[in-house]
Design a protein around this nucleic acid. Structure first.
Length: 257
DNA sequence: ATGGCAACGTTTCGTTGA
């Protein structure tokens, strides 16, 4: 079973890239972030023709998440418990894989910049709600696959220039601690579990020739619970997708079980 | 030395993202 996550930066602007990606890589499930559209303008038919059912939590202009799956799945939730602002940043589903009834959670964590505004406070609140929610599920021993755009750089080796991000909402110590709290609940950062090196990123800014210089960030992650980590066959950042014509600024991450 | 991108919509600029 191959599951992917990808911040597409508008599903309508990226529809050709997405279709090409699905044809070439054929994930069983893909978690999309920043689809930037309401459900009524979502390209449902295009994706159905490629063999994917879509489950959409849409929003006009900004945010928006979706899960695409080759088989029908049961949607669990479209809102993070405790998030009263209700931007479209969360969608979860129950799937069956071998003997496991897994909850797949697709998240688009608020960016949080600038740090002296309520945007940063919203990120803190959102992450605190996420931690609470995940803690409950782990206590109930639910096998979890949490994927998405976390907008968190976990460690220094996950950013091209740690010094220039020291007070950024993606890398502040306060934010990195939230990530550590999640990990300490009993989750594995799948990419980091299998790859110890630096310079491996999932996002490159459109500006300043970031892609050409590999000035990137690793902010798109898969976190999974312990019973699933031994079942991982492969974890891969599909870096070449960032090199396409009219690309998203994020590359997909694929996890194969 | 400086500036450099892309997507959206009450669209041709202001706002947002990371």
């Amino acid at each position: 079973m191959k599951i992917a996550t990808w911040n597409v930066n508008s599903i309508r602007a990226r529809i050709d890239n997405l279709k090409q990606y699905l044809k070439s890589n054929s994930p069983d499930i893909i978690l999309l972030q920043e689809i930037k559209t309401e459900e009524k303008n979502y390209p449902l038919e295009d994706l159905k023709q490629l063999g994917y059912f879509s489950y959409v939590n849409g929003q006009k202009s900004y945010n928006g998440v979706a899960i695409l799956a080759k088989k029908k799945i049961d949607i669990c939730d479209k809102n993070l418990k405790g998030d009263t602002i209700k931007q479209a940043r969360y969608i979860s589903a129950n799937i069956k894989f071998r003997k496991y009834n897994i909850e797949v959670i697709n998240i688009y964590v608020p960016n949080g910049n600038p740090v002296d505004t309520d945007k940063y406070q919203y990120k803190i609140m959102w992450l605190d709600n996420l931690i609470k929610s995940i803690e409950k599920k782990i206590k109930k021993k639910v096998p979890l696959i949490i994927g998405g755009d976390f907008n968190i750089i976990p460690e220094e080796k996950d950013v091209y220039s740690p010094n220039s991000y020291i007070n950024d909402a993606l890398f502040r110590l306060e934010i990195r601690k939230k990530f550590r709290i999640l990990i300490n609940l009993g989750l594995f950062d799948v990419y980091r579990h299998f790859n110890k090196g630096d310079g491996n990123y999932t996002f490159w800014d459109y500006q300043r020739g970031s892609w050409q210089k590999n000035n990137g960030l690793r902010i798109d992650h898969f976190l999974i619970t312990g019973e699933l980590i031994d079942k991982v066959k492969k974890i891969e950042i599909k870096k070449n997708i960032r090199n396409q014509l009219k690309p998203s600024d994020h590359a997909p991450v694929e996890c194969t079980f």
